[in-house]
């Protein structure tokens, strides 16, 4: 009895921890149970690589949306990652303290803006700009990529910055003392040493781009068709669910759950990769610490 009392806090925390895990299990289970039948009915190949999505005709091919998701996320990464990494280098290496004091909270604020506001802003500024100056309907891969690039910045910046700041300061001093310039030190010593953290930042940023729904619905055009250029509208996996879930029933609804499964798997793979990269980086550094 006494023992039980001593362990009571442990038991309570275990219970609470289990409840969050079970939420994950519940959601996963639900999606799989509801979505799996259609994948087996239509066949995984026809589902994932089918070119036509027409629920009224019972055609459930999500390939254009997979392409849409890939295009939009890749675009976001191409724009957002270089800016984000440069920003983190600036903040950790070049910015005087008073600038960082302004920048850091500002970037956190960027993460706090609701996505519908991003979408609205994109619709008002980016979409007309693209339509007027670059052509096409404006609602496009490019518009979504730009907005998503801004949305992933906080993730990319803060994780890269933390991994740069976490480097032993001896790396930097040692390199500078050898007569490397500041920029050479960053390029040759610091960025490679912080590589695992930066890669993880990029992957998590892309994961966020893939998962974003509301902002994308508002500016990506949502047309279910293979895009021919970045100025074409597309539909992504998330927006497909977001748009149709409200009125879908029966098999149609199952197909949306199945879309969710595909998304789920993609995100899981990305997160697992990020976890793996971060932990292998930590291990390598842990070993160094032991040695010194």
């Amino acid at each position: 009895m006494k023992k039980f009392k001593e362990n009571l806090p442990g038991h309570i925390f275990l219970l609470l921890a289990l409840s969050s895990i079970s939420a994950l299990a519940l959601i996963t289970g639900f999606i799989v149970v509801r979505g799996a039948p259609i994948i087996t009915d239509v066949g995984l190949k026809d589902f994932a690589f089918g070119m036509s999505w027409a629920p009224s005709l019972e055609e459930y091919g999500i390939f254009p949306m997979i392409i849409g998701t890939v295009a939009v996320s890749l675009g976001a990464a191409l724009i957002g990652v270089p800016i984000g990494i440069c920003c983190s280098i600036f903040l950790s290496e070049f910015a005087p303290p008073f600038i960082t004091a302004i920048f850091r909270p500002a970037i956190q604020l960027l993460a706090g803006i609701p996505s519908v506001v991003y979408g609205f802003w994109g619709l008002i500024f980016i979409v007309p700009f693209i339509r007027d100056y670059l052509g096409g309907p404006g609602l496009s891969i490019l518009a979504a990529s730009i907005i998503l690039a801004i949305m992933i910045l906080p993730t990319v910046i803060s994780i890269s910055e933390v991994s740069l700041l976490a480097l032993p300061k001896q790396y930097k001093e040692g390199a500078l003392a050898l007569g490397l310039t500041h920029w050479q030190t960053i390029r040759i010593v610091m960025l490679p040493a912080a590589k695992s953290g930066i890669v993880a930042a990029v992957i998590l940023g892309i994961g966020r781009a893939i998962g974003e729904t509301m902002a994308v619905i508002m500016i990506v055009g949502n047309a279910v068709a293979m895009p021919e250029s970045i100025l074409d509208p597309v539909r992504t996996l998330t927006t497909n669910i977001g748009i149709e879930m409200g009125y879908a029933t029966g098999v149609h609804q199952e197909a949306l759950f199945a879309t969710g499964i595909v998304l789920f798997i993609v995100i899981m793979i990305l997160n697992a990769t990020a976890q793996y990269i971060v932990s292998s980086g930590k291990q390598a550094r842990g070993k160094e610490r032991q040695k010194s």
Binding site: Q170, Y171, G174, A175, A177, A193, A284, R285, S292
Partner: peptide, 11 residues
């Protein structure tokens, strides 16, 4: 050239 108290070879 300078050698520090704590050796910090690069990884």
């Amino acid at each position: 050239g300078m050698v520090f108290e704590i050796p910090a070879p690069l990884p």
